[in-house]
Amino acid sequence: MKHSKYIILLTLLIVSHLKGLGQIQANLILNSNPPSYLSDWGNGRAGQLLITAGGAAQVDLIGIKIRTSIFDSNKDLVCKSNINSAQTIALNRGQNTIRMDRVLQLENQQFTALANNLARSGKLSPGIYTFSVEIFDANTGRQIVNTIERVFNQINYVLPYLLSPVDKSWLDANTAQSAITFRWSSLVPLSQEKTTYRLQVFEILNNQTPMQALRSNQPILDTYVDRTTQYIWRPNMNIKNSMYNTFIWTVQTLDYRGEPVNVQDQNSQGRSEPRVFGICGEAGADKTKCGEGYNWQFN
């Protein structure tokens, strides 16, 4: 009995704390395959943090600070944000949506040696990670919501390499005018969702460099190929005696939404490093001489 007053006091404290917790509810929606570049997490594709503030008590609303951490699959810390320099986010009554870049606070992270790949490429090393979010009252520093953890898969796609026709090769005109076979490697790792390859072939017109042709011409072949990595093109055009007999080709890799797979230079729109080939018009000639001395003006 002599401790009963302490028990009552503790119970009141717990009830009060739970009541406080009840006024703030948070839900972290994180895409299990967020954009591979951490700096792209603000574009809506990574997810968002939903915080419902208010409730029956109608207390004055508070500002919050968020601390985030990323752990690798061994539960080793990759980075942790500094709560002292975190921005204060003022909550409105009702539902608040916080963009993932404001949750992550990349500029406020303290990195460990495990973030070496991030420093080199803007992306974490591929693997499974845990994203942890803690929300604090900005005034009191008290954690007001239980720590939220979400697992995400860091996938760093490697675009297809163009395999055939081999770069700077010369194809026999008599066979090429009926069929040319294009082959490229798969997107790596293989996507669980549908992957579409958009094969584009451009004629290189006179006075044009190959890259100029790719950047300025309408493709003579523009076709979509699902999953498979081979396409047999029946040109049905004058290739043998044409004024232009060199071509540049590339493959644009599109995800299940039809959007280009994200790469470093976003102006390239998920296009693989292009390759060039020519048509060797001399029938029966020494094929080793095809294109001899030709300056491709191409890296």
Partner: peptide, 25 residues
């Protein structure tokens, strides 16, 4: 437009000022 400065990649002034989206290789 990403907030800066970068805690991973130092500035290389006067050529480039880094921010939280920066990387170097």
């Amino acid at each position: 437009q990403a907030p800066g400065p970068s805690t991973l990649v130092p500035d290389f002034l006067p050529f480039i000022r880094t921010n939280s989206s920066s990387f170097r290789d």
